[in-house]
Design a protein around this nucleic acid. Sequence first.
DNA 1: CAGCTAGAAA
DNA 2: AGAAATTCTAGCTG
Length: 553
Amino acid sequence: MNGGPLIVQSDKTLLLEVDHPDAQACRMAIAPFAELERSPEHVHTYRLTPLGLWNSRAAGHDAESVVDALIKFSRYPVPHALLVDVAETMDRYGRLQLLNDPVHGLVLRGLDKIVLLEVSKSKKLAGMLGARLDDETIAVHGSERGRLKQALLKLGWPAEDLAGYVDGEAHSIDLAEDGWTLRSYQQEAVDGFWAGGSGVVVLPCGAGKTLVGAAAMATAKATTLILVTNTVAGRQWKRELIARTSLTEEEIGEYSGERKEIRPVTIATYQVLTSRRGGTFTHLDLFGARDWGLVIYDEVHLLPAPIFRFTADLQARRRLGLTATLVREDGREGDVFSLIGPKRYDAPWKDIEAQGWIAPAECVEVRVTLTEAERMTYAVTDSEERYKVAATARTKLPVVKALIDRHPDEQVLVIGGFLDQLHTLGEYLDAPIVEGSTTNKERERLFDAFRSGELRTLVLSKVGNFSIDLPEAAVAIQVSGTFGSRQEEAQRLGRVLRPKGDGRQAHFYTVVSRDTIDTEYAAHRQRFLAEQGYAYTIVDADDVLGPPLPQVD
DNA sequence: CAGCTAGAAA
DNA sequence: AGAAATTCTAGCTG
């Protein structure tokens, strides 16, 4: 219509022309409700999904604002049927509400009687609903609050949960007042969460998600259960809470493989909760050990399946999910939506970078050419092993070294997915390795040495995908990854995004073998970051290695 | 009680 | 669609 950057197609894909002058504004406008699917050089593909639309609906956007954005940036007339579909899909959220009735307890109310009638006939809801109280109200078994929301989402009628929460056991928690305040986006995130009751806050790694958690605790002023991915991450939470809140060492317990403390604020690992013996979960008591007023899920994109089940029974407690990437590789975003809650806040990474709260980062994909012999091996390897062969090619070694040498004054993390490759690298670079078998004690020692500057280079296995706080790292070099995991890429970039004291830039290199599936996987991993506005420059390994040394024979 | 190892789970 | 890696428990040792 007006030469805009966006082509809206009736199959619900949106094509964004990247080089168009309005592309950036358009990206900002559609990001709240559309999911990026592909991001090659010139045209990015987004998709409209029901979940994306419902998340933006829950965040207070109405169908009109979505329709306006599509029409405003569209190059051609937007298919009418698609606009109708957007409006209808968004309108499905909240037509059913879960409420707390003073007489009947938990009830499902239909703002639309027909919808209520329709879902009440569904076999999927059998056993969850009780007596029909009137035209627009049906009693709900209190214990089924979570499972009912899951089922309704699957039926396409996600309920708005207004049934409220128990306060839990009160516990005095305040933010410490010595010379710092929450950043504006952190405050907005906490306000959004609290107003919504429960849900997910999406912020980049390094943007201070722990402080959002601390502020939520200071708002709830109640006993809190914090679930984290591993023990070291848990200790970082503890350290941060002691520094930034009125909580003392004695008030915070660690519930991990090593210790089983239950205190007013308890930090537990997902693994310990999901561990079982003889088919029964052994540590479930933790959920009932106290009258928790708030449950915080760190790295909610990694939440293991059993935790979803327990969470279904925790619907009367306030739940805060924290993550940098809401995308899950297992497609269970719907369960996060119905059981933890809708997305309550997110901010584009580039916005927070523009405010100076995370370091600007340059992303470079370095392509190496395999040697004749490596190409031969690759060619004769069957498909299952191929990725490993391509990703762990020895040709990458000197390239990694050259990249490190390009930043002589920076601390460097080398991150990969295959242990033997990492051991080779560790020897080659004379750098220590942190992997799964590294004891927590040793990890903390190495991380401390790195933080203090004593150690310049550290090699990390998949443990580096999880929250590790290493503020000094300014350069990360990725040598291999898992499949094409988008969240992994984001976590790894996140390792270098903590703002540097003097505003230095961060560098993220990904070293990839040319003409192999290594290249494809790398492209897949980069998708999420492309959505956040990070563009990769592709360079040849020879440009990194510099001119070849003269041959001496 | 710290440190190590094997074995299970997802 | 599959393989690798991680993290837990439990049992042993000095």
